[in-house]
Design a protein around this nucleic acid. Sequence first.
DNA 1: CTGCCCCTGTAA
DNA 2: TTACAGGGGCAG
Length: 268
Amino acid sequence: MPELPEVEYVVRRLREYAADATIRKVYVADARVLRPQTPRLLARRTEGRRVTGYERRAKNILIHLQDGWTLRIHLGMTGHLYWLPLPEKLPPATRAHFDIPGGRLVYEDSRMFGRIHVHQAAELPELFADYGPEPLSDAFTWQSLRAAAQNLRGPVKPFLLDQRRVAGLGNIWAAEALFAAGIDPRRGVATLGDAEWRALHRAIRRVLKRAIAGTFTVTAKASDFPDADLLTMRVYGREGQPCRRCRRAVRRMEQASRSTFFCPNCQR
DNA sequence: CTGCCCCTGTAA
DNA sequence: TTACAGGGGCAG
């Protein structure tokens, strides 16, 4: 479930609840979430080290530690990462947890598409070398978006999901941004004009900012993130329901084996 | 680019 | 029982 806004939420919560934590001990209940690394390696690199900062890069959570180590946690489809105060019981889908003073950092993940890796901080630039700009940073402009599509063909929706073009857009907000920009997800990137690139760029930023603000308006359990608010979606998950703008039925189609929702009337 | 794979849970 | 799920890596 987590996309950029939820990952951002997690990072801000960790800064709030687990600032200056020291990792005392690591427990791995299912080593598959570490692949290709191992519990032994994870323990060796993290135990006894203090957290020096939390950061989000695309949909990755970075936990910087003393001695130049960084935990990189990707939540995949069903991952959750949050601080849990000590008396509370670990949930059944806990795959790993980190003991810190006063509580635990819990990594829960039913489908285990997420990953926990430890890296030397120096190797991070290489790790993220292929990522596109952060959509909420100054580096992301409508010109940079247009440039990322140079010499590419194919529909705009899969283009937006490609982390090398823009970092951190997922299926929901790609669909919502295209609706906000009034662009049909089937349109080829080569057919978009400057006015459309501008509109798309603006829509991506607006939609993500609104989603981030939204995650903070709902109270979440144990500082975990709340589910994306389907009530505020314009098209995502609304197949057959009336478009909130023109009342015509929202359509669902498949693109690159992912579902795409759009309004054929409002998006052209 | 698309298709297949990785996994489990939930709803129709 | 089947369909579907908001993640990404990899081969073709």
